[in-house]
């Protein structure tokens, strides 16, 4: 099975993906409405996995709902809440439910979320999870036993272009690709020059790069993510730009659209994180789409 996203990237299409957070609850009406609306503008929709260690509906179930309606989900699966049995069994379940794109992640630590007394699992790390996905595709589970169906996932991994020290993170990026990662979806990029350097560094790895764009909704939110979201740092000039804007939300959209356009030359696609304002994604991607 080759996914639409995989085909588009392989044929050199500039792809757009967006992140939609599944609901805290079993009512997926709004989640589905948002996703349907977004589907017209993006090539695939990331379904987050208890993002920020905050308990929500299973991303496997939410992604399956999207797949059932003919949408293209990217099932985010983290090592925080599942041991290797649960990871593999969810992956097999995803394949059976028609989910082909998987983003293999370590997962934010339990201490960030709403169940702080929970036991963090981390039985595998993201590199080992990618190896697991590859193994299942070759028809073998982690115990070396045969699995039927041999699900061929289009597997991706996370990358942080602005992380320091970059050489240290690069060792892991190499391992992720060796373990089967075919695309990177990056942490939010705020400096396009850093993305350029990143793309240059990973070019020998022959992996697709989908650069992250975060919608900053206000100066307060920019400060909040800087101090509370792992790996995110909004540069001071952007915070000031939001602060002095008469309409911060509009300024946020302008910043995101500007970053998207500036990043486009250095990547194979963009991944828009709108933090609940997915309705604004069409405006953010308008410029980069019209250049298609």
């Amino acid at each position: 099975m080759t996914t639409c996203l995989q085909q588009k990237l392989a044929s050199g299409h500039f792809v757009l993906t967006a992140e939609v957070c599944p609901p805290k609850g079993s009512d997926c009406t709004e989640f589905l409405e948002k996703s349907r609306h977004l589907s017209a503008f993006v090539d695939a929709i990331n379904v987050t996995d208890n993002q920020g260690a905050t308990m929500r509906i299973s991303p496997l179930a939410a992604a399956a709902l999207l797949a059932r309606e003919g949408m293209e989900p990217i099932f985010q699966i983290t090592c925080r809440d599942r041991n290797r049995l649960a990871l593999q069994s969810d992956l097999l379940g995803a394949a059976a439910l028609g989910i082909g794109n998987v983003l293999a992640l370590t997962g934010d630590h339990i201490s960030f979320g709403d169940h702080k007394a929970s036991k963090p699992v981390f039985d595998l790390d993201s590199v080992q999870l990618l190896q697991t996905i590859k193994g299942l595709g070759e028809g073998l589970d982690l115990a070396g036993r045969a699995v039927s169906g041999a699900p061929a996932f289009f597997a991706g991994a996370a990358a942080a272009p602005e992380a320091e020290p970059f050489p240290l993170t690069f060792y892991k990026l190499e391992k992720k690709v060796a373990a089967g990662a075919q695309f990177f979806q990056t942490q939010a990029v705020f400096d396009p020059e850093r993305l350029r350097l990143f793309s240059e560094a990973v070019r020998p790895l022959n992996v697709k790069v989908i650069a992250g764009i975060l919608l900053l909704k206000s100066a307060g939110m920019a400060r909040f993510v800087t101090s509370n979201i792992p790996g995110l740092k909004v540069p001071a000039p952007l915070v000031e730009e939001l602060e002095s804007a008469a309409d911060p939300m509009a300024a946020g959209v302008t910043i995101a659209a500007r970053l998207a356009a500036a990043c486009k030359p250095y990547c194979d696609g963009l991944h828009i994180m709108a933090m609940g304002r997915e309705d604004l994604i069409p405006q953010i991607v308008e410029a980069v789409r019209s250049e298609k």
Binding site: H109, P120, Q128, E164, L168, P230, K233
Partner: peptide, 13 residues
Amino acid sequence: PKGLLNGPCGGMD
């Protein structure tokens, strides 16, 4: 805190 064996997670800053 995650006991990672293959390098830092994305949260390293």
